[in-house]
């Protein structure tokens, strides 16, 4: 297993993050975000490193990772796609789009594709109901989708 470490830029960011909080535990979530930006998912090595760095027991970090939808304790892909399936989006076909793109790319929910390109996650309300049905592709909102436009948008991804 490869040992994880923050790169130089992120080390600096990490030091800056600590100044934002009055205790080190509070900085855990931003640090996890930072680690996930660098490593794409929070592997046991990442957790071990952060635990050592911040002096927080590993189990407490695992608790946090498992609690939040946007922290991944399993490998993701280059492009993380989150499809909203809450009330308004489902009314306009969000579930069909989710299922449709899974079928089209022959994927399973929350499993990365073989080539490491796509990772599709079913989400509850993304807070963009006016453009239902919507999804997030790498933190960017895409609204007013149909299955066709959704597939098109995903196909052009790197």
């Amino acid at each position: 297993m490869k040992k994880f470490e923050f790169n130089t830029a992120n080390k600096k960011k990490y030091q800056e993050l600590l100044t934002h909080y009055d205790d080190i535990q509070s900085a855990l979530m931003p640090v996890l975000h930072l680690a996930q930006e660098q490593h794409s998912w929070l592997s046991p090595e990442v957790v071990a490193h952060i635990s050592e760095l911040m002096g927080i027991p590993e189990i407490k970090i695992n608790e946090v990772i498992s609690f939040y939808d946007m922290f991944y304790d399993h490998p993701t892909a280059r492009n993380v796609v989150q499809v909203c399936t809450n009330i308004t989006c489902s009314m306009f076909g969000g579930r069909e789009i989710h299922k449709g793109i899974l079928d089209h790319f022959q994927l399973h929910n929350m499993r990365p594709s073989q080539d490491g390109k796509l990772y599709i996650q079913k989400m509850e309300c993304l807070g963009a109901c006016e453009m239902a049905p919507c999804m997030r592709i790498n933190n960017i909102y895409e609204g007013h989708l149909t299955l066709k436009t959704a597939v098109q948008k995903l196909e052009v991804l790197p």
Binding site: H20, M29, P30, H33, Y68, D69, F71, E124
Partner: peptide, 12 residues
Amino acid sequence: FELVVHRGAGAY
């Protein structure tokens, strides 16, 4: 007054 933006991670 110090102001910090703290991002959540997807929990209602």
